[in-house]
Amino acid sequence: MKRILVSIKRVIDYNVRIRVKPDGSGVVTDGVKMSINPFDEIALEEALRIKEKGLAEEILAVSIGPVDCQQQLRTALAMGADRAVHVQTDVAVESGCAAKLLLKLVEREQPVLAILGKQAIDDDCNQTGQMLAALWGRPQATFASKVEISGDRAQVTREVDAGLEVIEVDLPAVITTDLRLNEPRYVKLPDIMKAKKKPLETIEPSALGVTPVERLKAVKVDPPSMRSKGVMVKDVSELFSALRSKGLV
């Protein structure tokens, strides 16, 4: 069966204003809205579109983390994923460990594609997809803004600093999504009901033979230093003089 694996991370919602805890132990998460990482939502949307074109038969959504991740997996199922695997753990999972866990699932499920968000908007690491591709020994097409599948190959347009780069990769491969790849669909109520009946498997990391280890310890979290507010000028000539006196124009 042609299968696509999509990873789903539970993160603080995009619209929430982040507050650092006064004791420096992290950011405030109590009572804060949680959502699917936006880049992962784009990954799932892309997988669904590939399936709708008849180029894949099954979409598997995977999430790693505490039991609450199942909420995001249910949303993924409501969006259209066929089944879900929850790798349940309460300890912090670094990108390297997430990649090892995903590799075990890739070996078990044999997908033609693994589509991941290019980064999670909590830790902003931008690592897991590339690490999975390395461990799997397969191609990576990161920061994708266009994906075209033909036969056992994919042509991917990547957003790079210099412009748009096109590469061709043999399948299976890992693709990581950039913002403009697509616009994810909204979930409809009947789909939420239907999603409750879709299979969701829970598995421990140890059952996959991986023990999460913390190798990069977070010592403390601080708020960013703020720029101080400058001066308001009344018109263009005052602005010009100010910039001229600093040698900037």
């Binding site: 982040i18 950011v27 390297g96 908007i121 902003d124 990069l216 977070a218 979290v221 708020p223 960013p224």
Partner: peptide, 30 residues
Amino acid sequence: PQASDIMAVEGATRFRRPIYAGNAIVTVEV
């Protein structure tokens, strides 16, 4: 392990990097 986007060096094993789109800065130690 990888430390992404290091913005300050506090020693050979200790670095600062932005998280949450720069709304917080984490000090990491390997």
